[in-house]
């Protein structure tokens, strides 16, 4: 075998070993990722099935959102709030929009329940928070029609007025009373 052939042979061996190492490293990396994603999907499926599965705070945003949805669906808003805080500032915009929207929906549903039993006082802050949530969702995604629709419902429950913004966060009690005169009517068809 000539020197040149031997050199070519060594080159083939070296490059194939390098490619082999790269391929194996890639396989390990993607294998681990696939495993983690499968585990996350199992958690999401369990939460969707109604099992209360504990989730680490630094889990994947999709898992955090599944847990948030689990809480908002069951009106456990205090437990959902920390998840929302985390998801709303994370880089994943669609999930931030979905989290804000689901949380606002939960608040608005709760407020409508209160209104159904003529329990107006706790309903007002809930509607205000829901409106704020829809607005934040729409700021991130102005084309989100479901959020527009539900914000419109919330707006007709408690209308925005210029003087509220002038007064800032605190609503004077008479302003709140003035607001409720604008309520077009209590929800129909609810108990």
């Amino acid at each position: 075998m000539s020197i040149e052939r031997r050199r070519t042979g060594r080159l083939v061996i070296l490059s194939s070993v390098a490619v082999l190492v790269i391929g194996l490293a890639g396989a390990l990396w993607f294998g681990a990722r696939l495993h983690a994603e499968r585990a996350d999907n199992a958690t999401i499926a369990a939460l969707a099935a109604g099992q209360e599965v504990a989730v680490s705070p630094d889990a994947a945003p999709e898992v955090l959102f599944a847990r948030l949805h689990f809480f908002t669906y069951r009106d456990r808003l205090d437990e959902a709030q920390p998840l929302l805080n985390r998801l709303a500032v994370d880089g994943n915009r669609p999930l931030a929009v979905a989290s804000l929207y689901d949380m606002a929906n939960a608040r608005l549903r709760l407020a409508i329940d209160h209104l159904g039993t003529n329990d107006i006082d706790p309903a007002i802050p809930l509607v205000r928070l829901a409106k704020d949530g829809y607005r934040r969702a729409l700021t991130l995604d102005p084309g989100f029609w479901d959020a527009k629709y539900n914000l419109d419902i919330a707006m007709r429950l408690v209308r925005d007025f210029p003087q509220i913004d002038v007064d800032g966060e605190e609503i004077p009690p008479e302003a709140a009373k003035r607001l409720w005169t604008d309520l077009p009517g209590l929800p129909q068809g609810l108990p």
């Binding site: 490619v19 790269i22 391929g23 890639g26 994603e37 949805h69 929207y101 479901d146 629709y149 419902i153």
Partner: peptide, 30 residues
């Protein structure tokens, strides 16, 4: 109907097809 909200955004599974294909490609390369 006036008080019927649009439904929640439901959680979705993490798509794994991309990772699966990447894993397959790495194995083929190796």
């Amino acid at each position: 109907q006036a008080m019927t909200l649009r439904p929640d955004t439901a959680p979705r599974m993490i798509p794994t097809a991309g990772t699966r294909h990447a894993l397959l490609a790495s194995l083929v390369i190796a």
